[in-house]
Amino acid sequence: MDILIQNIITGVATGMVYALIALGFALIWKSSRVANLALGQLVLISSWFTYSMLVQFKFPFWLGMILTIAFAILLGWLIERLALRPLIGQPILSLIAITLGLAYFLEGFTAFIWPQGQGNLPKVFPQTSIQIGPAMIQQELLWAAVISLILFILLSVFFKYHRMGIAMRATADDQLAVQACAVPVNRVFSMSWIFACVVAAIGGVLISSIAAINYGLVETGFKSFSVVILGGMESFLGCIVAGPIIGLCETFGGSQFGSSIKEVIPFIIIVIVIMIKPFGLFGEERIERI
């Protein structure tokens, strides 16, 4: 019984971390219909930047965080301006391929600047485990879960009520019509990439302060595609519901069939979901016309 509750809480908390990364994906997809496959690499590069700020230059934590977020904003703006904007209106294959190129570039860039391959951030959260009912749980995981929940609420409110959020949703719906209504579509795209990079940076700092900075972050990025697929690509709610489901499947699968299966469970879920319900739990089914 204790183990059950322990597994549930750990699973939900790990799932929330996936959900956090997946939010960054949904943001870009929602506004510009670009599938960002460089998700893990964005997390990786911003974690390494934080590492530089906090460990190599020994800045205080608050300054390091501000600089990291500034870096993420700059990165998002640069990516959109230099790589994505010239491709507006190109076929989807080019859009996917350019994010792959971006992924390669960012990965090479991190290996170029930070070739050590492994780094540890100073611990942000208290290390003591806390007791919930009969189960012991690492406090950091709970903090990560709470922060992703807060980000989810903020983003949902932003998309629902803020002018820019509404413009982003409208752009996703019909780019031409929105342009006719004098919405600055370029700025919408810019903003969505900037937001996504900031979310990725926050996710990166959270994950790498819990574990370590290494290539595993990129794989976490791939795993969070399962969250996106299960939840439905354009839904924040989908991310926040599907994340814990994936996390639970992972922990329970791991405890049932040995821990090595953990690595592959998200991918099996992807295949099953796409075969049965390709648009996910909360996604919109798109009807195509010629």
């Binding site: 790589a83 971006l102 390669y104 990965e107 090479g108 860039f109």
Partner: peptide, 10 residues
């Protein structure tokens, strides 16, 4: 290697 290759794709 990775960096230049990614750049070439872009």
């Amino acid at each position: 290697n990775l960096m230049l290759f990614g750049l070439a794709i872009i």
